[in-house]
Amino acid sequence: MRARVAAAPAVALLLGALAPAPAPAAEPAPLEDARRAAERIAFDGVLEVRWRDGVETRSERLTVEAAGGALMVRGANLVMARPAFGRLLAHGGGGWEEMWLPSLAPGPRPDGRAKYATTPSGAGPAVATRPTKVVEVRRSSALVERIYLDTETDLLLERDQFDAGGTVVRTLAFESLTYRSSSTSPAAGPQSPAHHAPKAVSSGSSAATLADGYQRMGTYRSGGVVQTLYSDGLYDLSLFEQRGRLLRSDLPGPGERVAVGKATGWRYPWPGGQLVVWSAGGTVFTAVSDAPADQVLAAVRSLPAPRASEPSLLGKVRRACQALMEPLA
């Protein structure tokens, strides 16, 4: 991925007439404070995203602008969060697409405090010249995240994620930040974005819980893809299901080979976390999450074995034999 801070078109943040709906969240308190701060404060700055990709560390810079509960992220993609949970995205100079509608509010997140302990650890180093207070998120005494909040505003200035060995695997940090006094912002938003938001559907046979405390928050469908959203209170995991089989040639790249039940899957890091792709029972699964890799793998391995919709082994043998014998009959 190339670092490209797009010369963004004159697209401005939309100040919706609607007040933000109540947040269906129960994140650990410091992150809940950070969420409120990002929706309350007007600011702009440059955010660096760094992530481990095998032995390599990669990074990208994004510009962010927030006002009145709306947030705009400018990178090679433009991403916009409207108040009341509307989400829009535009690919490098393309038109806006509506990715999420306020009416799709998922269920509440589980209480992250059951799994993680958050402890203040005093003052931290300045981030983007702002003084910070540090909060550590631990699971069974192992450090999972270190979060740097602005001492005065509670805005999240840096967030570091650690692997089981204590190495930083992913970082999000402001390089520069400017608070604006006024929350007014240009009010022109995308006039007629393409509608690509999913529809909420019945959870059907999707698992209500996954290993490591992940609980289902909602199930959605877009075309032939069903998404089930899970959360453990701190991290989220989307499980996408598509009927069919996976060809090696269709894999997104040379990922790490992993076992998911009896199937072979492939794991890839992305700037926001991890994803795993595998195929089983006539369905292609893609799990996307911001959780550490070990949690994502534990969660997907706990999925019940998919019921095969194909014929029994005897049926397959019979069908194959028929196909082979037909020409000779």
Binding site: L31, L71, P106, L156, R159, D236, G272
Partner: peptide, 8 residues
Amino acid sequence: VGADLLSK
């Protein structure tokens, strides 16, 4: 949705 926008 309902989470820290910068992180997610």
